[in-house]
Amino acid sequence: MKVRDIVDILDGSIVFGEDYLDRDVYRACGSDMMSDVLAFVKEQAVLLTGLVNPQVVRTAEMMDMKCIVFVRGKSPDIGMIDLAQEREIVLIKTDLEMFTSCGLLYAHGLRGGSGK
């Protein structure tokens, strides 16, 4: 799917990255613990999280991720938006909770990193 599909599926809004919505993404992971995210590299391009601080953007950067989805109506602050801009990472927010967001994206074909 494309990054723009994520916005539609989650009825979300784009916080940053209008220019990068045509990027293809195949894998995602959802977590509020950054070291859990960093534990499995499987070309996940999307990070779903309820956590809001600069380390979320930095974690995505280290993993070469393309898009971060903030769930439960969380909004990144201006510092995080600046970081994402420098690193060309799309930021999306949705009011949906983590479980629902992951389920919807999975149902539309996005997959997990799965396995050690």
């Binding site: 070291s35 859990d36 960093l38 979320v56």
Partner: peptide
């Protein structure tokens, strides 16, 4: 803040 899973050193 999203740290303290005890996964850093293993990673």
């Amino acid at each position: 803040l999203g740290f303290g899973a005890g996964m850093g050193l293993p990673n």
